[in-house]
């Protein structure tokens, strides 16, 4: 057969591309279930019309508390609201025994990153959605996928394995911070964001 050599070479390239772009991401990430389902939309929707800050609060010293503690949930959910299984689990397994929910955090950063929410949200007035996306209106939690090597959520790299974000809020790696800082001429020093 003519062109057998080049054909095979091309096949090799194609095979590698298929593995690299489709099989590799599946092998690299492992899906892990969240302990509970959470519906942001119910909380932020018309019925309750809560804002982000009502649950994702700042502490007195200005640090951001991130995912609210169970005490915060208990303010409303001391008894089940509605009859869903989720609601029952929330109250029985977490609220009543005052046990924190072991959420898997999509935006967890390494220990050496210092990200003060107060500076970004209060001083620079950046909207939550600009970094976290519109999940405040989602009615279920996305699948949590953990990188088998680095141990961080897939959301840090972004869902697109190429690293090119499909949405402006996708990806939470350092280049994302650097880009935004450069745009605002805040690119002073490594220690600004590293500890």
């Amino acid at each position: 057969m003519r062109f057998k050599g080049p054909m095979l070479f091309l096949a090799g390239i194609l095979l590698a591309l298929c593995i690299g772009w489709f099989a590799f991401p599946m092998a690299l990430y492992k899906s892990e279930p969240q302990p509970l389902q959470f519906n942001h939309a119910i909380h932020t929707g018309e019925q309750n019309s809560m804002t982000c800050e009502m649950c994702h609060e700042f502490a007195a010293d200005g640090t951001f508390k991130g995912i609210p503690s169970i005490a915060k949930c208990a303010e409303c959910h001391s008894a089940p609201i509605g009859t869903t299984q989720n609601e029952k689990t929330l109250v029985e397994q977490y609220v009543t025994p005052q046990k924190e929910i072991p959420w898997k955090v999509y935006s967890r950063q390494p220990d050496n990153a210092y990200f003060p929410h107060a500076v970004h949200v209060k001083k620079a007035e950046i909207k939550c959605e600009e970094c976290h996306g519109p999940h405040g209106s989602s009615d279920h939690l996305p699948v949590y996928q953990v990188n088998r090597i680095s141990g961080y959520s897939r959301d840090i790299w972004g869902h697109n394995i190429s690293g090119i974000p499909s949405h402006p809020w996708e990806g939470m790696k350092m280049d994302r911070c650097v880009r935004c800082h450069a745009e605002r001429h805040r690119d002073d020093s490594c220690l600004d964001c590293h500890k």
């Binding site: 050599g5 590698a16 593995i19 590799f24 394995i161 690293g163």
Partner: peptide, 19 residues
């Protein structure tokens, strides 16, 4: 030849860079 193609192809996938 197939392997050579795969190696070249791999360079155009996220595998080496992401790893």
């Amino acid at each position: 030849t197939l392997a050579g193609g795969s190696v070249l192809g791999t360079l155009f996938t996220p595998i080496p860079w992401k790893l």
